[in-house]
Amino acid sequence: MAKFLLSLHVLASVLFIGPVAVAVSMFPRRAKAALAGGPDQAADAGVLRILHRITQVYALLGVAVPVLGIGLAQVMDVLGQSWLIVSMVLTAVAALALLLFVLPGQQAAVDALAPETGDVQREKAVKGLKTLPMTAGVFNLLWAVVVVMMVIRPGSSTGV
């Protein structure tokens, strides 16, 4: 059972968190280009909508990763170990960063590209883009730390 849950947990993390990490990383540069105007603004706006949608859908699917991880930890009887608790806290912080900063920043940029958007809303979106690369980087860094902790498992009793 543990091997099955581990396989699902790893597969879900690769298939669901990976696309979010890529979309979150690509979004700020494409948003800056789209909000600057230019000949490819319509194409950039389409790309932004797709990247934002990928972030939303795969983030929702990504909830399976910690759910499977908790189930796996229960089966392996490691739920109380400090490395797992730290990784769960970092996962929660990453989720909060995504929900509170990344997704609203992306939505503001997408909304600013709508034809009926005024200059004030567009300027607000441009200002919001200044923090979006940083929050995207923090989100991805948190996930990278969690992955390393899952591999190294400091203090783990599994002996591997």
Results as ranks from 00 to 15, higher is better:
residue 78 V to L: 06
residue 104 P to M: 06
residue 74 Q to N: 11
residue 102 V to D: 04
residue 126 V to K: 15
residue 84 L to K: 07
residue 111 D to M: 01
residue 95 A to V: 08
residue 77 D to R: 09
residue 102 V to F: 00
residue 116 E to F: 10
residue 95 A to N: 03
residue 75 V to Y: 08
residue 76 M to G: 01
residue 101 F to V: 08
residue 101 F to H: 12
residue 80 G to Y: 02
residue 86 V to Q: 04
residue 97 A to T: 15
residue 100 L to R: 12
residue 117 T to E: 11
residue 99 L to Y: 11
residue 85 I to M: 13
residue 94 A to H: 05
residue 69 G to W: 04
residue 92 A to E: 08
residue 79 L to N: 11
residue 99 L to D: 10
residue 126 V to Q: 13
residue 128 G to H: 04
residue 119 D to T: 15
residue 85 I to Q: 14
residue 113 L to D: 05
residue 91 T to Y: 03
residue 109 A to P: 01
residue 127 K to I: 10
residue 114 A to G: 09
residue 86 V to F: 04
residue 95 A to K: 06
residue 103 L to K: 02
residue 72 L to A: 03
residue 103 L to M: 15
residue 74 Q to T: 12
residue 69 G to I: 07
residue 70 I to H: 09
residue 76 M to Q: 15
residue 116 E to P: 03
residue 108 A to C: 09
residue 113 L to A: 09
residue 123 E to V: 10
residue 123 E to Y: 05
residue 69 G to E: 05
residue 120 V to K: 11
residue 96 L to C: 13
residue 98 L to M: 15
residue 131 T to R: 15
residue 98 L to W: 01
residue 92 A to I: 09
residue 81 Q to P: 01
residue 76 M to R: 13
residue 92 A to P: 02
residue 78 V to K: 06
residue 71 G to L: 05
residue 98 L to V: 01
residue 108 A to V: 03
residue 116 E to N: 14
residue 88 M to T: 05
residue 131 T to V: 10
residue 89 V to A: 14
residue 86 V to A: 05
residue 119 D to Y: 11
residue 74 Q to W: 13
residue 105 G to L: 04
residue 125 A to N: 03
residue 117 T to F: 10
residue 83 W to S: 01
residue 104 P to H: 08
residue 92 A to C: 10
